[in-house]
Design a protein around this nucleic acid. Structure first.
Lengths: 240, 240
DNA sequence: CGGATCGTTGACAGGTATCAATGCTGGTGG
DNA sequence: CCACCAGCATTGATACCTGTCAACGATCCG
């Protein structure tokens, strides 16, 4: 039975290599023996839209990699309001805060059906002491997170409402087929862009009227990246 | 001469321990021999307001710790506009992106006279392979950065202009004497809070009229934390 | 004393939040 | 099978807030 668990873990390991499609190579250099040494294996699983991956009160014992789907990270303010501070896309790592024993910083909720790998922090710690390579990989993950946070700050929270919505759609399209992407609920868009749901609705409606955004299936749209990007250009056209 | 350099590095090392006042303990567990082994020592120096610590084009060969003063991190957008995405306070680490060879993500400019430690990335790398403890410390630094970024997103970019200004002042006061803090130029406040400099000016002026903010010296104010915090409470007073 | 830079203040237009009403859709139960 | 309901998107009307443009004042410095 234990052997079965190990085997399952190793299966997850091979999937990790597939994740490498999006430079997800945390474990690319591990051998079969390394896995056999572990008591608590990596576990892969699936969550449906609306389900919670973790919240701030959960035990910070695992980090996760998102193999497919979409996850939102919600930050709650003392006054009860909330904001979506990040959207996790395929290949990203979630819950890195757990390293170091600190509680999770957010409430992580699935937007689109998600398949994930669940990795015990203790495992990372063990490997960390032996493999400086993994340590480097983790460092790169942290950088990615910061880099994403900066995009949020410098692009998604600035400018007119239609510019913010355009930026968000383009951001979501990056991880997807480049011109098809997930379309968040209007309330989620509001919480993401610091605008009201009604304004978000108005903007999306206007984009649809222009033909820049077309619904394909529920919560899925195809879009015209060029037109949307055009909205962002003329923020400051200085005469240099 | 080399010996003198080493001695200087060690002096900087002792200062690191002083930094530990704000849980800055990157090198707290290093011995004298460890330092003697290093070819490129830690160097400490000072920068005046307005001077640049680094920009995106600089060689990402060092990370820095801020022993005193204040530094803003600016992110430039493709369209030429810019935003202040973080403000580095005493005890914080700057330029962590340099780990991993990636270019610096921002333009780092001094707001208030800053004293810093300049640490070669190569040094960190070397130590990293031997000391898992340092690796842990770095992890904690990353967390801190993320945590700060989240504050920016969830508090400083949301709500009415006066709420944002209040949040910013309270944030700056944290690192200071709790009721005295640095008062940024109106333009910097605008770039930080995603509002126009004029609006920032109006809000600050109104705070001064209310007596919540009082200039002490140029770019320095004392403030009434309670009153400012009061502005943030009634965002959503639900009947729970 | 002029000039530059920054902060302040005013007037006004435009964008957005808010409140409210109306469609729309999917699920439930009769 | 249909009616009903709940939740979400849409749309409208209005007040408020903020951006913008512009003028003026303060301060510092050459």
């Amino acid at each position: 039975m234990l052997d079965e668990q190990i085997s399952n873990a190793w299966k997850a390991g091979t999937k990790c290599e597939k994740c490498a499609i999006r430079n997800m190579v945390l474990f690319a250099d591990l051998t079969r023996e390394d896995f056999d040494l572990m008591h608590r294996p990596i576990h892969d699983f699936e969550l449906r839209a609306g389900e919670t991956l973790y919240n701030v009160e959960a035990d910070p014992t695992h980090i996760f990699t998102l193999r497919s789907g979409l996850i939102k990270l919600i930050s709650y303010l003392p006054d009860g309001s909330h904001r979506i501070v990040r959207i996790i896309k395929q290949g990203d790592v979630v819950g890195l805060e757990a390293m170091g024993g600190k509680p999770y910083l957010h409430h992580a909720v699935v937007l689109e059906v998600a398949t994930l790998c669940k990795i015990p922090v203790s495992l990372i710690d063990t490997l960390n002491e032996n493999s400086p390579h993994l340590s480097k990989q983790l460092m790169l993950r942290w950088q990615q997170v910061i880099s994403d946070a900066d995009i949020w700050l410098s692009q998604l929270s600035v400018g007119l409402a239609n510019q913010r919505v355009a930026s968000l759609l383009l951001y979501l399209a990056e991880g997807d087929n480049k011109d098809k992407c997930y379309l968040p609920s209007r309330e989620d868009m509001g919480a993401t862009l610091a605008i009201s749901p009604e304004t978000a609705s108005r903007v999306v409606a206007s984009f649809k009227r222009e033909g820049w955004v077309k619904s394909t299936s529920p919560y899925r749209v195809s879009l015209n990246p060029g037109a949307l990007a055009g909205l962002l250009e003329n923020k400051k056209d200085l005469i240099l």
